[in-house]
Simulated scan of single mutants.
Amino acid sequence: MTLIALIGLTAVAYTLACAFGLAPWLTFTAVFGEYSVPNAGLITQIVLTVILASLFFFMPSAGRIMSLERSHRNFKLSMEDVARAYHLCHTADRSGVFTMSSEFDAVRERLSYLRDHPDLDRLEPSVLELAAQMSQQSRELADVYSDEKVMRAKTFLTQRQEEAERQQSLIVEAHHALRDIRKWSQQVELEESVVASQLSQLEEQLEATLPSLGYTLGKESAEIVKLSQKPAAE
């Protein structure tokens, strides 16, 4: 058909060029018995051009007929079409669209759904039937992974994740509090050690000073005891 279209367009273009004096006409003389036709070439060229141009009007219908014949003759199941139809049917099954329990009714219900679907209007009936059967075989899987159960599982996981994040934030706060308490404890121990050192120094100074005043510091009772003094005459 492409070759015929090219030949027809070439013939029309060449004849128009000849009509406007841009190209020479086809010239030959034809003799039929006693009659001679001197412009037989021009007449033949025009008639052939008209015939080829008239074929243009039949090419669209001929192309549609050939396409239909080729599609029916060379039709094969496309796995991509089957997968697309099965995906739509399985998605509807997970949403709870189908309610029939018996195998025959379930397949018929799914097939009716696929036939009425606007995205599958160009698919062959055999493709839709195969997709419906596949969806019926996987109805248990659709029930296990239904939209309601999947949403409930996602909600449960979301709650667990929020709880884990809350526990994590509490652990971080506990670490900060523990660090502050440990730092505070070290500071208190340091202050207590300073106070103990100061008391020890004070006690040493007091023990060194009291004897000159006639007193002594009792170790056990922590009392100041007056020393006995001898008379000056003795």
Rank of each mutant, 00 (worst) to 15 (best):
70 R>K: 15
86 Y>S: 13
33 G>P: 00
199 L>S: 07
197 S>E: 06
184 W>L: 06
45 Q>F: 07
135 S>K: 00
36 S>Y: 04
185 S>W: 03
129 E>M: 09
225 V>S: 08
74 N>C: 06
142 A>M: 10
2 T>E: 15
47 V>Q: 02
179 R>T: 07
140 E>I: 10
34 E>A: 04
30 A>V: 13
195 V>N: 09
123 L>A: 01
31 V>N: 05
41 G>E: 02
78 S>M: 09
173 E>Q: 13
77 L>G: 06
5 A>C: 10
75 F>G: 05
43 I>T: 14
119 D>E: 12
107 V>C: 05
153 A>G: 11
156 F>T: 04
136 Q>W: 07
127 V>P: 01
190 L>R: 15
79 M>H: 07
209 T>Y: 00
43 I>M: 13
225 V>I: 15
72 H>K: 15
121 D>C: 08
178 L>H: 13
230 K>W: 06
160 R>C: 11
107 V>Y: 01
224 I>S: 01
79 M>Y: 10
34 E>R: 14
168 Q>M: 15
72 H>I: 12
11 A>H: 04
82 V>H: 01
226 K>T: 08
92 A>T: 05
208 A>Q: 05
110 R>C: 04
62 A>H: 03
47 V>Y: 01
66 M>Q: 14
222 A>L: 14
126 S>N: 07
101 S>F: 13
153 A>E: 11
24 P>S: 15
109 E>K: 00
96 G>I: 01
81 D>C: 11
214 G>E: 08
102 S>W: 09
148 E>P: 01
171 I>P: 02
26 L>N: 00
206 L>V: 14
74 N>L: 14
177 A>Q: 11
30 A>R: 14
115 R>K: 13
182 R>S: 12
41 G>C: 04
72 H>E: 00
48 L>R: 02
40 A>P: 00
5 A>H: 07
212 S>L: 09
66 M>K: 15
35 Y>L: 08
164 A>T: 10
57 F>I: 06
160 R>L: 12
225 V>R: 09
70 R>L: 06
127 V>S: 00
173 E>P: 03
40 A>C: 03
84 R>Q: 12
48 L>F: 14
76 K>V: 11
16 L>I: 15
155 T>D: 07
158 T>I: 03
208 A>G: 11
6 L>I: 10
116 D>C: 04
132 A>N: 02
96 G>N: 04
200 S>M: 05
11 A>M: 13
61 S>R: 09
116 D>I: 04
185 S>H: 05
109 E>L: 00
212 S>W: 08
126 S>D: 04
212 S>N: 06
95 S>Y: 12
82 V>A: 05
